[in-house]
Structures are given as C-alpha cells and as structure tokens.
Simulated assay, not measured.
Amino acid sequence: MTEETTETPRDTDRVEKLEQEGDIAADYLEELLDIADLDGDIDMDVEGDRASVSIVGADLSQLVGRDGEVLDALQELTRLAVFRETGERSRLMLDVSGFRAEKRAALEKVAAETIERVQETGSPVSLDPMSPFERKVVHDVVAAAGLTSSSEGVEPRRYVVVQPV
C-alpha cells in the first residue's frame, strides 16, 4: 500500500520559491550583521504564504528601534534585496529578537477581546491606528472567529473596524 501525499507540484514550487526568498534574505542580513559588527543567528521558515526570517541574538534592540520602526525599515530593505535577485515582489516577514512574535501575541489578545465586545454589544468596534503588520494580525484573528473587519483611514492613521455578523 502506498501513501498518498496531498502536496501538489504547484505547492512544492511555491515552497521552494519561498525558501529561495528566505535564503536570499538570510545572505543579505548576514552581510548587514557583519558590517554592523553585530552577533546574531538567522532562522528561516515558511509560514503559510510567506517566507519568515528571524534574527536572534544577545542585544539586537538597535535593529528593532522604537516601536519596531527600524525593524520595519530593515524588513523593507530585505524585501528589496530579494526583489533585486528574483525580480518578484516579496511578502517576506522579518523578526528580530522575537519582537514581532511578542507583538503578534499581544495583538491576538486585543483582537479576541474586541471580538468578544462586538459579539456582546452587536455594534462595530474601531481600534487604534496600526501598522500594516498589526492590521493583518487582527484581520486574521477576526476572520478565524467568523466575523468581518475592514481597514479605514489613511496611513499612518489607518485602523481596523470589527463588525458584528
């Protein structure tokens, strides 16, 4: 009896493409760490539909910056490095010292509390302005709960509104 795999050649191609993005990003970030004389290890993964690269190490707070501003800029530069090599836009996610992972956990909690409030009151709830990353986390949690959400406003004051069913 043979085992059937549910992974199609198209899925394999997609994962390989994302792994290639991760490799390019890792090489770019290794060079950056060397230039800045910073110690850090780089972990790569594929999470859903995007490559994920994390830099972990002793004190890398200068790569995060105030409220993740430096991390956001570094992510965009890394995406540009991937674009330069592949000719395709990347949705790569970069994390440094677990900053985004902690932020994601806190946002998931806020989203869950907001969902509960919307379900109790039956009224839409608007959240404070958020970055694109933060809004995506909230939208994903809201969708998983079976509710709808939308982004409103103009950057940098763009925010999420969670609607009742």
Results as ranks from 00 to 15, higher is better:
41 D>N: 11
39 D>F: 04
16 E>G: 09
40 G>N: 06
145 A>H: 07
145 A>M: 07
140 D>K: 12
16 E>S: 10
9 P>S: 11
146 G>Q: 08
7 E>Y: 14
158 R>I: 01
109 K>P: 00
31 E>L: 09
132 P>I: 01
74 L>R: 02
40 G>V: 05
15 V>P: 03
57 G>M: 02
53 V>N: 05
21 E>M: 04
52 S>F: 14
92 L>P: 03
128 D>F: 03
144 A>P: 03
37 D>T: 14
81 A>Y: 04
121 T>P: 06
163 Q>A: 14
24 I>Q: 04
30 E>P: 01
68 G>C: 06
82 V>G: 02
150 S>A: 10
77 L>T: 04
87 G>E: 05
155 E>P: 13
38 L>T: 02
53 V>E: 01
41 D>F: 11
79 R>N: 05
33 L>Q: 02
60 L>S: 00
2 T>P: 10
58 A>T: 12
83 F>L: 15
33 L>M: 04
132 P>S: 09
17 K>N: 12
128 D>H: 08
82 V>F: 06
37 D>K: 15
82 V>L: 06
43 D>S: 13
92 L>E: 03
123 S>Y: 13
71 L>R: 01
163 Q>E: 14
71 L>P: 01
76 E>D: 14
161 V>N: 08
10 R>Q: 11
12 T>N: 09
11 D>T: 08
141 V>Y: 03
34 D>E: 12
139 H>D: 04
13 D>I: 12
91 R>Y: 12
132 P>R: 01
123 S>V: 08
38 L>V: 03
78 T>H: 04
41 D>T: 12
165 V>G: 10
11 D>I: 12
19 E>S: 13
134 E>G: 00
126 S>H: 13
41 D>C: 06
111 A>H: 10
49 D>M: 09
64 V>F: 00
143 A>N: 15
36 A>D: 04
156 P>I: 05
100 R>H: 00
125 V>F: 10
11 D>Q: 13
153 G>M: 11
27 D>W: 12
151 S>W: 07
69 E>I: 10
49 D>E: 15
16 E>Y: 07
156 P>Q: 07
162 V>C: 07
110 V>Q: 14
26 A>P: 02
100 R>A: 00
89 R>G: 04
46 V>I: 14
128 D>W: 00
137 V>S: 07
147 L>K: 08
5 T>V: 12
136 K>A: 09
129 P>D: 00
32 L>I: 13
108 E>T: 11
48 G>L: 09
128 D>Y: 02
46 V>H: 05
133 F>T: 02
12 T>W: 11
120 E>L: 10
107 L>K: 06
149 S>N: 08
2 T>M: 10
38 L>H: 01
80 L>F: 13
33 L>C: 03
102 E>L: 09
96 V>M: 00
38 L>M: 11
15 V>T: 12
93 M>T: 15
76 E>P: 01
142 V>I: 12
141 V>Q: 09
107 L>Q: 09
10 R>C: 00
3 E>Q: 13
143 A>M: 09
51 A>Y: 03
56 V>F: 10
53 V>P: 05
10 R>H: 11
9 P>Q: 12
132 P>K: 00
104 R>W: 04
